[in-house]
């Protein structure tokens, strides 16, 4: 079997897995709470706390929307599928773990992109938010969505049948990321330790791209942001592959 044929097979299978998740899990309560309501409440809390005007907080809202919505599908779907044994169907299919992880992550990516686009369009229509470079926003949304979806798939590798177990673990990572990634609090105002941690947060680079797209002000060069997000995606994918293989017993 040639490389092209193999790649095509893997992509078809990944897309089939993603479509299945779209049909089953997008409207589950756990997904809606984690992917839509959490970032919305966070945005309202920061707006009410007068940490900035609604218009100024829109890039941050899009950033945390991608973080929460992209990483909210797999922590719900995979434990449920372990409980119903449907996950074994995927594990025993003639596809690689790469295709399985990618397929699971694709559904998180699509979910995140749709919600982020709703926020983007609503902000444009209601607040008339100025845009400096729409390409940066689009790339930021796409890459951060894939990055955080893969992160959600990675966490879901933990062998439990309870979505609550995974969601709790993901939240331990998601909430601190909001405060150390320059989303609502500029990185420059963080203590030295916080600034160092910010460099190892994918949300820092995602937020930088989206902020740059809105107001033209960026901490890093866009190529650095894109490269770092790609590196995070690859790292999450590799770790997820390893963990799914390790926990398949």
């Amino acid at each position: 079997m040639g490389f092209q044929d193999r790649l095509s097979r893997e992509l078809v299978a990944a897309w089939a897995i993603a479509k299945k998740d779209v049909a089953i899990y997008y409207l589950r309560p756990g997904t809606i709470v984690g992917g839509v309501l959490f970032p919305l409440f966070m945005f309202l809390a920061f707006t009410a706390g007068k940490l900035g005007t609604a218009m100024a907080l829109i890039p941050g809202l899009i950033g945390i929307t991608t973080l929460f919505s992209a990483s909210s599908i797999e922590p719900v779907s995979i434990p449920i599928e372990r409980r119903t044994n449907t996950f074994d169907r995927l594990l025993s299919a003639p596809i690689s773990l790469n295709a399985l992880v990618l397929g699971e992550s694709l559904s998180g990516l699509l979910y995140s992109v749709v919600i982020a686009l709703v926020v983007f369009v609503a902000a444009l229509l209601i607040l008339a938010t100025p845009i400096a470079n729409i390409l940066l926003i689009v790339v930021g949304i796409l890459l951060s969505s894939l990055c955080f979806a893969t992160m959600g798939t990675l966490f879901a590798a933990y062998p439990t049948e309870s979505p609550g177990d995974i969601i709790s673990m993901v939240n331990v990572v998601r909430f601190p990321l909001i405060f150390i990634s320059g989303v609502f609090i500029p990185i420059a105002t963080l203590p030295a330790v916080g600034q160092m941690i910010a460099y190892v947060s994918p949300l820092t680079y995602a937020n930088d791209l989206i902020q740059g797209g809105y107001n033209g002000k960026m901490t890093f060069h866009p190529i650095v942001d894109v490269a770092m997000l790609i590196v995070f995606i690859l790292i999450f994918q590799l770790i997820a592959n390893y963990l799914y293989k390790r926990f398949s017993d």
């Binding site: 299978a13 897309w15 089939a16 479509k19 299919a93 003639p94």
Partner: peptide
Amino acid sequence: MLAAQLYR
């Protein structure tokens, strides 16, 4: 259809 697509 899902099963068929997984087996291409």
